[in-house]
Design a protein around this nucleic acid. Sequence first.
DNA 1: TTACTTGCAAAGATTTTGCATCTGT
DNA 2: ACAGATGCAAAATCTTTGCAAGTAA
Lengths: 138, 138
Amino acid sequence: MKLHRRKSKQRERIHELVRASKDHPSAQAIYDRLKPEMPSLSLGNVYRNIAILLEEGRLQSGEFGNGTVRYDAVVSGHYHFVCERCGGVSDFAMAARDEITEAARRLSPHRISGHTVRFYGICAGCLGAEEIKANKRR
Amino acid sequence: MKLHRRKSKQRERIHELVRASKDHPSAQAIYDRLKPEMPSLSLGNVYRNIAILLEEGRLQSGEFGNGTVRYDAVVSGHYHFVCERCGGVSDFAMAARDEITEAARRLSPHRISGHTVRFYGICAGCLGAEEIKANKRR
DNA sequence: TTACTTGCAAAGATTTTGCATCTGT
DNA sequence: ACAGATGCAAAATCTTTGCAAGTAA
C-alpha cells in the first residue's frame, strides 16, 4: 500500500463506470468501454486501478462460474443472481438479511464481518428462448 | 457434452480428492497432490476433467478473492467462510436456509434453483496471530 | 520537487486445444 | 473396432511488472 494516494482521472472513471454498469464487467470489458473516451488508456492500468479500488474497498470482485473475474461497486450487502445458461450476472433485489450474519457469529470462532448471497438458476431471457425452441420442435 | 461418458481413473480420483480436501483446491493444487500417485497425470487433463465434473454437477467452482478459481465437491447447499487476511476458505457449519431460495422465487421472474452464502471476516488463526503481535508491541 | 500514475511491452500465470496414442466398452 | 480419455506441447487468455516519461500536490 502506497503512503499517499493521488486523485487520478482514470481511476475515478473506472469506479464510476463499474457503478453505472449493471452487468458486473470484467477488466477487459471496462477497458473496452473506456477506451473510446480515453484513447490513451491501457489495459495494464485498468488492472492496477482495479487492484487499488479493491484495496480501498470501493470495488468488490467475484467469479461467477464463467471463468473470468468480474467487478462490482460496493453497495451495502446486495445479493446476486447468476444465470447458469448464459452466464449473466445481475443484482438481486432482496434486502440483505443481517440476521444471517448474526447467526453465523454465534456459530463460529472466526470474526465475521458480513456475508453475501448468490442465487443460481436460469434467467427470464433464457427461459423465453427455451420456450421458443420448444414451440418450434412440434 | 459428449454422448457417452466412460469411467476414468483420473476423473474419479480428482473427484475423490476434492471431496476429501477441506481447503477447496485450485486446479494446480489438485495436480500437485495427485501427481505423486499418478505420475503420468497432466495438468491439461486435470482441467479437462474438472470441466466435465462441473458439467455433471459433481463439482462446484468458486473464486474467493485471491484470483484463482478453486473447486469444491457438491454437498447439498453448504456455505463458505473466507478469511480476508490469509485467503483461506472453509466450509461453514450452518444449515442451508431454504426459505431464502423460496423468498427469492417470489421476488423474481427468473427460475431459481438454489443459493449459496459466503461469510467474510478474519479466521480464528489470523486473530490469534494478531494478538501475539499486539502483545509484542507493548 | 517528490512520489504517485501511466502507457507500453515483456513476462508470468492460468486455461484451452490439437494431435497422436492409449483405453474402456 | 469405435468413441472417449490421456499426455504433451503449443497456443490463447488473463494478469502482473519493470521502466521511462508524465503529472498531481
